[in-house]
């Protein structure tokens, strides 16, 4: 039976002390094991104190974003053999976010930024009797935007997000563009007012880490370009 070394960053707030790395051997018991299967094996069979988030185990809940061998990803949809280098995977919590315990980070601020941009439909016109209709073309504009699962892989991969604690970040910006670009929404102006700021859309320096990090294949940079274009059209 083959085994892979999981090098995991451990941090125990109660025990005091600095974060440190700990090695575990994970046995590959079946083909196609995910990184999450490895973490589960460690927690269930070796060390019950290992803390990490997981829920749906199929890339929908967005709770198990971590940094594996230097790149942010979801452990539940990443094969161990895909990422293992010389029989080893190094797992760290998402960078740039406050550490709570082991692989668990504090998403409070990340989510506060999400709500700052008003990620919900804003309408002035009274509600119609039936649903608010969209043409198929209008609906298609939301593809690549509505799928976001708020896993924070993008924002926590962004150097601008690490450097500026007030920066809204790629995730919030992608989610606000999902509503600005929605034909049924009428809140574009009040949202653009929030985004036209040096901690808003202009803080994006097109580093493109977010595009690489997103496990859903979304493109936050493209969404931010949409916001910048809309802001420029409004201004100049």
């Amino acid at each position: 039976m083959q085994s892979v070394t999981f090098t995991i960053l451990r941090y125990d707030p109660a025990g005091g002390g600095e974060p440190r790395y700990q090695d575990f051997q994970v046995n590959i018991t079946k083909p196609g094991m995910m990184v999450l299967d490895g973490l589960n094996q460690i927690r269930w069979e070796q060390d019950g104190t290992l803390a990490y988030r997981r829920s749906c185990r199929e890339g929908v809940c967005g709770s198990d974003g971590v940094n594996v061998n230097g790149a942010n990803m979801l452990t539940c949809v990443t094969h161990i053999e895909e990422v293992a280098r010389k029989g080893r995977v190094v797992i760290q919590p998402l960078p740039g976010l406050p550490l709570i315990k082991d692989l668990v980070v504090d998403l409070e601020d990340f989510l506060r930024k999400y709500f700052t941009v008003k990620p919900y439909l804003i309408t002035r016109a009274p509600a119609p009797d039936k649903e608010r209709l969209q043409s198929p073309a209008e609906r298609r504009r939301l593809d690549g935007l509505y799928e976001c699962i708020l896993c924070a892989c993008c924002s926590s991969s962004c150097p601008s997000y690490w450097a500026d604690p007030e920066y809204l970040g790629p995730s919030a910006l992608l989610n606000v563009w999902r509503f600005i670009d929605d034909s049924r929404d009428e809140g574009a102006q009040e949202r653009l007012d929030i985004l036209d700021d040096h901690h808003g859309a202009w803080r994006c320096h097109t580093i493109l880490n977010c595009v690489e990090a997103c496990p859903k294949g979304l493109n936050p940079t493209k969404a931010i370009t949409g916001i910048k274009t809309a802001l420029l059209k409004r201004k100049f």
Binding site: D196, D197, G200, W202, K228, K235
Partner: peptide, 8 residues
Amino acid sequence: RSGAFEWL
């Protein structure tokens, strides 16, 4: 400022 001018 917002940074819009600098960007453009």
